[in-house]
Write a protein that binds this DNA or RNA. Structure first.
Lengths: 333, 333
DNA sequence: TTGTACGCGTTATCAT
DNA sequence: ATGATAACGCGTACAA
């Protein structure tokens, strides 16, 4: 690949002049500009980002750290959104290969070694030191689903609270008064805010809070199944179950069916995420749809803004969600 | 972040000596080595990959080009495999932001501008010029599911042919003699080799080939649904349907059910991919499982080998698959 | 065994 | 308007 020197020689000018043309400096005559551009075209020259980065101490690279990719159904959707936002932005996405088990792995060293301009962090909670390291180092960072902010760090998350609130409203309007809540571990923001939505919903509709109606279990089908089995044992069992994920909701539905009961006839079930399952399962699962694609897009837009503008105030973004009503919810018997 | 100069000053040696220590040269005394390493530790020094890359014309970066991420259910699984293989390899994965619509986008320019060491290409077929550009430029490349090879390019794909062949054997042993084939577009290797497996299976068991039993449709649920509707109209309808994807199989199953027939009672249905759906749907879907995680791992291992060894012969890898038997197949009536 | 000098491809500064 | 020169952080041939 031709270098800037080749172009300079070919055009009969200095390297400096070529650089000026590339970077749209004004102090170069139209005539030389044309000549240089012609040489660039002929030699199929492309500036070397690495060399440029060395002097500018930048890389036009957004680093990303993904943990537990496989267990998260949204990775591909989020990446699609990011890909769209990155297209023709001049930035590429650098998937950092981190060994999360290595105790002396340092994101900061990794990033500065590669001159990474900004970071996206997804699936890594506060229990890990990485987020705080990023915040302290004041490297431009956007967290997804981790409510951490700093001088150069913001975050984005779906509007979990309102999502569950809408679910509660939907169920209340159908006539449900005995509504249970099935969730995975509450340590992450997503879980916590969804639980808050549940509690707020109860208050709003003046329903009592029964701790027996709250089941914290594994964040998968089996977790949902077990949780529902417990709920079915209750003397005054709920007529509706709100789950914090579609997979848990599937487990719940199976438990209901296996107990000889029907969904939604005996018990209404609601999921969260609107994964592909939700529309395929029978009965179709009422659930909350988060626009992950949009989250991916916005993360990148915000991050680039943060990178390029030192005074940009790190945003806290809450992405709206939407209730998708299908067949798994109806009025109670 | 401290630079190599800082370390040299701190240790009271020249920059060269520090460099030699970093790169494990033998011509440095144990004493100075210790001294230098101590300084490195104290200053939390990390060599700058960008500067190093400028000198060595490398980047310790594997570029990846993903097209249509969202429509492919395997991205996250493959990326997990790649992530595992990349951990502690020293390489990071650079997700190239390509504008596929831009006619004068050039992978080669993009790669050489960033000194990308090798490329992984996934979801981009021969109808695009990108793969051939890579082959011609002799940039170390591994294609996934695109059977293209070159002096520095190889590919990896699941053993689609044997996968379908195993399915045919399974159905034949159950007693099926009228076996239909439902597939998406046959332009890609995956589709083509699966079709070859179907044909080979027919020959192997001395079954006739009926073109009416072959339905090419859209690669989604609706496609499967429509295909099955056509098959149901046949005077001598099949007793088993082999699909080239789980989603198409779901569509097929729905069409069977909607026609008042049963799976597997009236018609056995087989999918491909063993996506999460397969085990959740009722009846559970008999399908072929590809080990995408392993494909991801192997792609990276091979590519790194290719990058670091100029004489390494580009591999053609076929990843074994496994038949997962569930409830959607049984002996015909 | 250690260090000097140069080059990698680019941009910034300053002189012309 | 143009160019010579230094610098970015590092690797290496060669000299000492």
């Amino acid at each position: 690949m031709a270098s800037i020197t080749d172009v300079a020689k070919h055009a009969g000018v200095s390297v400096t002049t070529v650089s000026k043309v590339i970077n749209n400096y004004t102090d170069v005559s139209e005539k030389t500009r044309k000549k240089v551009n012609e040489s660039i075209r002929l030699l199929r020259y492309e500036p070397n980002v690495v060399a440029r980065g060395l002097v500018k101490k930048r890389s036009w690279t957004i680093g990303i750290l993904l943990h537990n990719i496989m267990t998260n159904p949204f990775v591909s959707e989020m990446m699609s959104g990011m890909q769209k936002a990155l297209a023709s932005s001049g930035y590429d996405l650098l998937h950092l290969s981190a060994n999360f088990n290595d105790p002396d792995y340092s994101v900061i060293r990794h990033c500065s070694s590669r001159n990474v301009d900004g970071m996206v962090v997804f699936g890594i909670g506060r229990d890990n030191k990485i987020p705080m390291d990023l915040v302290k180092a004041e490297l431009p960072t956007m967290f997804v689903d981790t409510d951490l902010i700093g001088r150069r760090a913001g975050y984005i998350t779906a509007d979990n609270r309102n999502g569950i609130l809408t679910v509660m409203e939907h169920l209340y309007n159908l006539g449900h008064r005995k509504i249970a809540f099935v969730s995975g571990y509450l340590g992450y923001v997503a879980g916590r805010t969804r639980f808050e939505g549940y509690q707020q919903g109860l208050r709003q509709f003046q329903l009592p809070y029964y701790s027996n109606y709250v089941e914290i279990s594994n964040f998968d089908m089996a977790g949902g199944y077990n949780a529902m089995q417990n709920l079915l044992k209750l003397p005054d069992r709920p007529t509706a179950v709100v789950c914090t994920s579609d997979v848990m909701a599937l487990g719940v539905m199976n438990a209901v069916t296996d107990a000889g009961l029907g969904v939604p006839g005996d018990i209404s079930v609601v999921g969260f995420d609107n994964t592909a399952f939700a529309s395929i399962v029978k009965p179709g699962l009422t659930t909350v749809s988060q626009n992950i694609f949009s989250i991916g897009e916005r993360v990148i837009h915000q991050l680039i803004e943060l990178v390029e503008n030192p005074d940009y105030s790190p945003p806290v973004l809450v992405e709206p969600v939407e209730l998708i009503i299908r067949e798994s919810t109806s009025a109670p018997r």
